[in-house]
């Protein structure tokens, strides 16, 4: 059960997480849009997205945390973005590219730990990597370079915090919660988890 090869159930798990999170992403995107419109006249509308940016890495870190096999973070994130595109994301076909970049960031972090360390540190590192990767890309793609540097640094800082909170802390808590219920027994995350007992007494 601890092979590194992907099994059918791993793939479906990634696909499901991808589909579920694509919906989350879309919903959050709409939320961000509303927020940014409110902030628009102040020119700080970019920050509304930075605050929630961490949400966009959740699929990658959560899937990797549950399945714990190489490649999972990258693929799940790409899937989530691809499905997001199908459901009508405004970013156009390039959301898949952003997904790829974010996923690669998370993947790299887990790979640095040789896929052996699964705790808050590795999860946070993965989130921060995702955040920085995508920021570099956006510098060019969204032409952020044309924006003032002070603003950029502030944006990046907010994005890091958001990444750690959402895809680091929250994903870890969610994963641990799942493991405790015992429903992920057949995945790496649940293999050693302590779960509730069935008592021997008769009723």
């Amino acid at each position: 059960m601890t092979t590194k090869k992907w099994e059918l159930k791993d793939i479906i798990m990634m696909a499901i997480l991808g589909v579920v999170f694509s919906a989350v992403y879309l919903a959050v995107f709409d939320g961000g849009v509303v927020l940014s419109t409110v902030l628009a006249p102040t020119g700080f509308s970019n920050f509304s997205f930075e605050i929630i940016y961490g949400v966009w890495f959740m699929a990658a870190t959560l899937a990797a945390y549950i399945i714990r096999k190489p490649g999972v973070a990258l693929v799940t994130e790409v899937l989530a973005s691809a499905v997001e595109l199908l459901m009508g994301n405004s970013g156009g076909v390039t959301v898949v590219l952003t997904g790829m970049i974010q996923g690669a960031g998370a993947e790299l972090a887990f790979a640095l730990f040789r896929y052996k360390k699964w705790d808050l540190a590795s999860m946070s590192l993965a989130s921060v990597f995702s955040a920085s990767f995508i920021f570099c890309y956006e510098l060019y793609y969204l032409n952020y370079i044309a924006l003032a540097p002070g603003l950029l640094i502030a944006q990046l800082a907010v994005r890091f915090v958001s990444a750690i909170v959402f895809s680091g802390v929250i994903c870890k808590l969610a994963g641990d919660g799942l493991a405790k219920t015992g429903v992920v027994k057949s995945y790496a995350i649940g293999a050693k988890a302590k779960i509730g007992k069935v008592y021997d007494e008769e009723d």
């Binding site: 509730g196 007992k197 008592y199 021997d200 009723d203």
Partner: peptide, 16 residues
Amino acid sequence: LRGIRLWRYRDISPYM
């Protein structure tokens, strides 16, 4: 729970 004979399963997830 005793009435429906599930008392000994009280600490596990309903899905189990």
